[in-house]
Structures are given as structure tokens and as C-alpha cells.
Simulated scan of single mutants.
Amino acid sequence: MVARWTALPVLAAVALLTTACVNPADSGTATATGSATSAPATGGPKRIGFFGFAKANSFSTATFAGIEEHAKANNATAEFLDSNFDAQAQVQQLQDAVTAKRFEVFVVQANDGAAVVPAIRSAVRAGISVVVHFTPVGNRYDTAEPQVEGTITLVDVPTVNGEGLGRLAVEACKSKKLDPCEVGYFEGLKALPLDNARTQAAVDVLRATPGVELKAQIEGGYTQESGRKAMQDVLQKDPGIDVIIGASQAILGAEAVAKDKDILYVANGASRQTVKAVQEGRWYAAYYLPVKTLGAKAAELGLNKALGRPVPTTNLATEVDPGKAMGTKEALAQVTGEYDE
């Protein structure tokens, strides 16, 4: 979850974000079309353009698997336009797609919510159904409400995600019964506005909690390699760290570095590996979102809008499979995850 799902980020957080392999046909405990309630599309096939974070990102690829599966079941096609985390490249892709009239539906995971606003407005004016997916489009990262008139949102509010990660870390500290409890926070990418908003929300929770000390705040990224490097840097300065928060991919790397340390991990992500780590007790908790199911839901909303059917304009990612976002061992007991890192 850029990440942050990485959660959950990423992002995530973001939610839920990394280089990884995904089996699009494998949906875990939830089917990609399970949230779809509409009748099959009529009047000719519709075309969905998915403007995802990156094709090399497991979260985005899992999202697209859900979009594509729902599209095929509803007389539509789907295409992944890869910006590879480049905000300006994504803006250009959106502009080109509007000009070429390539799609009736856009599903957009914005790398920079503010940068894409003009292109999104152009798409709405052109009659394209635009679903803002996972991260907000606009300057605010504390609301799920559409910030561009005419769009539909299906987002995980970054500040809510960050607060959730912070609360899970506080719970982890309480479980260790330490005072003080030393916490390290692995920010995703400092260049991403959504990561900055998520980080600040998490940090605010930690700093407001008596007995919790934020000992390290460092860019952890969305790969195992970046997580390993961040963990090495943290341990050099604070070898007694008790809890680490970060994207699930980064946590995998951190865990490999700190094998002999008694550290509790809070992950922002929703992969099968993340869920298993929580269920086995290796990690304390994860901010969980059903990523593939959310892709299917985004396709459902966009296609219904393109067909003139009424759709809710504001949709929260955490309400698609409620009760699991704060993914402790108990909350994820019956979950397997919907994609692989």
C-alpha cells in the first residue's frame, strides 16, 4: 500500500508499492468481481484506461487484475498505462488519452494529486467517467470527497491511513509494556505528497502518546532493498529500537536485517506475505485493504457512470471490506490476501 494498504502506504501505503510478481487470476479470499452488482454493460464494449503508479508495483498490478477481470465480465476492455511513479509522465499520459479519445473510463492512481488536476478536469469535460482510486486528486489529503467536480472517488484517505499506522504502533508498544517504547517510522517516498501527509498523521499520533518515543524517521521506500538500507541506518544509531512502521515491502527487507532483534513490525500493505507474517506473529499488525477487490469496484463505478447509471460519488476503500483495515492477528484471522509481493 503506497502504499499505504504499505499499506494499506500504498500506497499506502501507497497504500499499500513495490517491484514484485502478481498472479492476476488468484484472488485470495475475495473475488475481484465480488463487489460488482451491476448488470453486464450494453451498447458496445467500453474501454477503461488504468493510470496506475507503476507496472512494476505489486499494489498497482493487483489493482489492475481486479479492473481487468471486472471489465471482461462486463463487455469492456482495460489497459494499464505505466507512468513508473513519474508524476509528469502520468500527466502527459492523461492528456494524450483525452485528446485521442481512447477510453470512456479512467481509473487514476495519482502519483501527484495536485499535478493531475488540469488533465482530470479535461477528461471530465470530454465526457469521460473518472474514478479517483486510492489516492486523492487535489491538494487535500485528509478527505475522501471529490476535489474535481464530476469525478468519483474510491480512496484510502492518507491522513486516516497514517493515523491508523500510528495507533497500531502504539498498541504494539503497549503489548511490549515498555516505557519508553522506541519507534522508527519508515516514510515511503519523501517526494510524494501523499506520503508526506500520511507520515505527518502517523508522527502526530506517536508524539502525542506518553511513553512512546519516535527515535527514527527515515525514507524506507517501497522495496525490500530500500527497507534493508533503512533498517541498517536505524540500527547503527538506535540498536534498541522496539517498533518499526513502514510499507510492507520495506518491512520485509528490515526484518531480514534485524533477525536477532526483538522488534515488532507494523506494515502498510495487504499482500499474502504480509497477512501471513501477521498471522504467524512475526509482525504485530498490518493496515489491510482488499486490493484486487478495490480494482474491481473502481471498474464497476466507472462503467456504471459511463452507462448513465447512478453511482455514489464518494467511496471509502476501507468500507469495501470493513473491519479489517486495522489488521491485527485477530482481525486478519480469516484473510489470505489478494496478491503476492
Rank of each mutant, 00 (worst) to 15 (best):
A56R: 13
R207M: 14
F50Y: 01
K176A: 13
Y339K: 06
T31Y: 08
A285R: 00
A258W: 07
H70G: 02
A306E: 01
P310H: 15
A65L: 04
Q92P: 02
A201D: 05
R207V: 09
N196I: 10
P210I: 07
A201W: 02
R102H: 05
N75A: 10
A197F: 11
A54C: 14
P322G: 13
A123P: 07
V130N: 00
E187G: 05
N23I: 12
G127E: 12
A306I: 09
D238Y: 09
I152C: 07
F64W: 09
Q273G: 13
A110Y: 09
K55S: 10
V116N: 02
G113Q: 09
D238S: 07
P45S: 15
L206P: 01
G138K: 09
V320N: 08
A144N: 08
E171H: 06
V335C: 04
P136Q: 05
I128K: 03
G127I: 10
Y288G: 01
N75G: 02
G337E: 05
K190I: 11
Q249S: 14
L316Y: 12
A325Y: 12
G49Q: 03
G211V: 02
N84Q: 15
A56L: 15
V335T: 05
T151W: 02
T18K: 14
L294H: 01
G188D: 09
V234N: 03
W283C: 03
L8V: 15
L81G: 10
S175G: 08
S226Q: 11
T6A: 11
A20G: 15
V157L: 07
E225R: 13
F53S: 04
T199E: 07
G44S: 08
I152V: 12
T199S: 04
R198I: 04
W283S: 04
K259S: 15
V278M: 04
D82M: 10
D195R: 04
A191T: 15
T199I: 03
N23L: 10
G281S: 11
A65G: 08
L154Q: 00
A56H: 13
R198S: 06
Q92L: 14
V257K: 10
L178R: 07
G138P: 14
P45V: 09
A115K: 11
T31G: 10
L11K: 04
G34S: 12
L206S: 02
A169P: 02
E319G: 14
L235R: 06
G49R: 05
L303N: 01
E280A: 10
